[in-house]
């Protein structure tokens, strides 16, 4: 921790830029989900938030100079860790399933209420 403080913020950013990128993507994703009145854009924001977390996992598995984990009998290391890659592969597919159901609900909401803006939707629903 002490040598981290001695290194200063520029060095901190240069060695951990993927993590900084993760944090920014999480912030942008959360902003879109909260701020955008449009339901489709809220789902896009959710997807950005999600890929921010993927970036954290894949960056944590990375080792400089290592190869992708194709092991075989003749392969020589070092290799990056395969486990975070597997977790993220699963997460990508689950994320698409989530997006598909969310967008299905959005189409249904549009058919029922004729709008995709969250504030208009709230007014229409209180009038009912």
């Amino acid at each position: 921790m002490i040598d981290v403080l001695a290194a200063g913020p520029v060095d901190l950013l240069a060695t951990r830029s993927y993590y900084a990128g993760t944090f920014l993507l999480l912030g942008i994703g959360a902003y879109v989900v909260i701020a955008s009145p449009n339901l489709v854009k809220k789902v896009i924001g959710m997807n950005i938030f999600q890929t921010g977390i993927f970036l954290f996992f894949i960056a944590s598995a990375y080792v400089e100079g290592a190869q992708s984990p194709i092991v075989g009998p003749k392969a020589v290391g070092p290799f990056v860790s395969p486990l975070p890659h597997v977790l993220i592969l699963t997460a990508i597919v689950v994320g698409v399933s989530l997006t598909a159901v969310a967008l299905g609900l959005i189409v249904r909401i549009y058919n029922e209420y004729g709008t995709l803006e969250a504030d208009v939707l709230q007014e229409v629903r209180t009038d009912d």
């Binding site: 894949i58 598995a61 290592a66 190869q67 890659h85 592969l89 990508i92 597919v93």
Partner: peptide, 10 residues
């Protein structure tokens, strides 16, 4: 980041 499988899927 040496994760070609994830890259393909993405």
């Amino acid at each position: 980041l040496q994760a070609p499988d994830v890259g393909l899927t993405e």
